[in-house]
Design a protein around this nucleic acid. Structure first.
Length: 104
DNA sequence: CAGCTGACGCCAT
DNA sequence: TATGGCGCCAGCT
């Protein structure tokens, strides 16, 4: 592959609307089931306005783990709005039901 | 070349 | 369900 990031980005772009994928699944598809951290790093490397639907990428808890920054809060809110618009339901804790929206 | 960091996952409690 | 500890890989300084 051109690079782990490129592969990860490719996978994220392939996530269908209304569904979400976890870092672990992406890492596994990328060829490194243990590289979940690297996947997160790849997500962070995505420039704003890119075609990568990063909002469809969530962690094993079903939510985004951005750092505790105001920017992070903004992205997290935006992510929730987009996913809701795509038909993804959020629990009261702000989490997504991976059993229902997560890709098998 | 070596060490550190990071949008994490899994297991144990 | 929540919290803490350990390990994982890739990229940057």
């Amino acid at each position: 592959m051109d690079g782990f990031f490129k592969t990860v980005h490719r996978i994220v772009e392939g996530i269908p609307s209304g569904s979400v994928m976890t870092y672990g699944q992406i890492a596994e598809m990328a060829g490194n089931p243990r590289a979940s951290r690297a996947v997160g790093y790849a997500m962070r490397a995505i420039p704003s306005g890119s075609d990568i639907p990063w909002h469809r990428v969530v962690n094993s808890k079903g939510e985004i783990s951005l750092r505790r920054t105001m920017q992070g809060e903004d992205d997290r809110l935006l992510q929730r709005a987009i996913l809701e618009a795509e038909g993804v339901e959020f629990s009261k804790s702000g989490r997504i039901d991976l059993k229902k929206y997560g890709l098998p």
